[in-house]
Design a protein around this nucleic acid. Structure first.
Ligand SMILES: [Mg+2]
Length: 319
DNA sequence: GCGACAG
DNA sequence: ATCTTGTCGC
């Protein structure tokens, strides 16, 4: 399906960096833009330190400054020296005539553009009315990480009582970075082994559903791709505006549409939105009914479980 | 122009 | 998300 055969972003970033010629420079944001979305700038920056055999010293900040932090194969002075040896003038920690030296001709696949198209297709298949009979259980889903190992957890709660019923975990290798707006490509493959179609079951995902720039966050991917009722419950906002920030419960508006509900207990907030196969009202009622210190209890439990199995796995590896 | 940016 | 110890507060 859509979330398989994801692009190897490390390899693609390495390829992009390799295309910057001697005497030229580029920026995190320009490389991200070459892949189709500047929102990936930070992700590019995080991958750079691990990239070998490519001229990462030619990647500078968007203002032309050379910087001095790790990840560029040395400190700022070393990088300035390398750039000078390639014919560039560096003064006061900045590349002189940065605009002229800025490389603009990347030939890499715009993979993020394709993913946005996929998200638009997902959005078109989202349904926003309750697609189940009597709600019996709510399954919280969350993921914890250690390097490229992902630890996914599902915590099943009985809706009537709110009590925990069971739990499951699954470990997978992660192959895609976190990029704002593309969380589904990182987390949904890890959660997939824990999802099955069962009557009366709602999946509660740690993240957004339709409260998303393309109206299709991770919760919508789960709802649509697996054909299960799903809702998103995130701890912070990715897009949209809270109408009444001080209220215990408020509508969240995105592009003129009431796409989300903010629930709060004290300073802990949860932003609820439709994944698919459920109405926003029902999703908010379920989250509200299971709210424990500002977080729906199935999600709190899934979060704790994912962290626990990660720590156990790491401890096991050291033993 | 600056800030914001799920996990 | 992860890196981390003690510490402040309800
Ligand atoms: Mg999470």
């Amino acid at each position: 399906m859509i979330l398989e055969n994801l692009p190897d972003m490390v390899a693609l970033v390495r390829e992009a960096v390799s295309q910057v010629p001697r005497g030229s420079v580029s920026t995190y944001g320009d490389i991200a833009a070459a892949f189709g979305d500047r929102a990936a700038a930070r992700a590019v920056g995080e991958m750079l330190p691990g990239i070998l055999g490519a001229p990462v010293h030619r990647i500078v900040y968007s203002d032309g400054s050379v910087g001095g932090h790790a990840g560029h194969g040395g400190d700022g002075n070393a990088r300035a020296g390398l750039l000078r040896s390639e014919g560039l003038e560096v003064r006061g920690g900045r590349v002189v005539s940065f605009a002229d030296a800025r490389f603009r001709d990347f030939r890499v696949p715009p993979v993020l553009e394709g993913m946005r198209r996929e998200q638009e297709l997902i959005r078109a298949e989202v349904t926003e009315s309750d697609s189940f009979g009597a709600l019996q259980r709510v399954v919280g889903l969350d993921v914890s990480y250690e390097g490229d190992r992902a630890f996914a957890a599902a915590a099943v709660h009985e809706w009537d009582s709110g009590e925990p019923i069971s739990e499951r975990t699954a470990e997978t290798r992660i192959g895609f970075p976190y990029i704002p707006g593309y969380l589904a490509y990182r987390e949904v493959p890890a959660l997939a082994p824990l999802i099955s179609k069962e009557a009366g079951t709602l999946y509660l995902v740690d993240g957004h559903g339709t409260l998303h720039p393309r109206g299709a966050g991770a919760a919508s991917h789960i709802g649509v791709l697996f054909g299960v009722p799903a809702a998103g419950a995130a701890k912070s906002l990715l897009a949209g505006k809270v109408l009444d920030p001080e209220a215990e419960r408020s509508q969240v508006v995105l592009e003129g549409r009431g796409s989300g509900i903010m629930l709060r207990q004290g300073r802990n907030r949860t932003f609820v939105s439709v994944g698919s196969g459920i109405s926003l009202d029902t999703a908010a009622e379920v989250c509200s009914g299971l709210l424990d210190r500002g977080i729906p209890s199935p999600l709190r439990r899934a979060h704790e479980l994912a962290n626990r199995v990660r720590r156990e796995a790491v401890a096991e590896g050291k033993a």
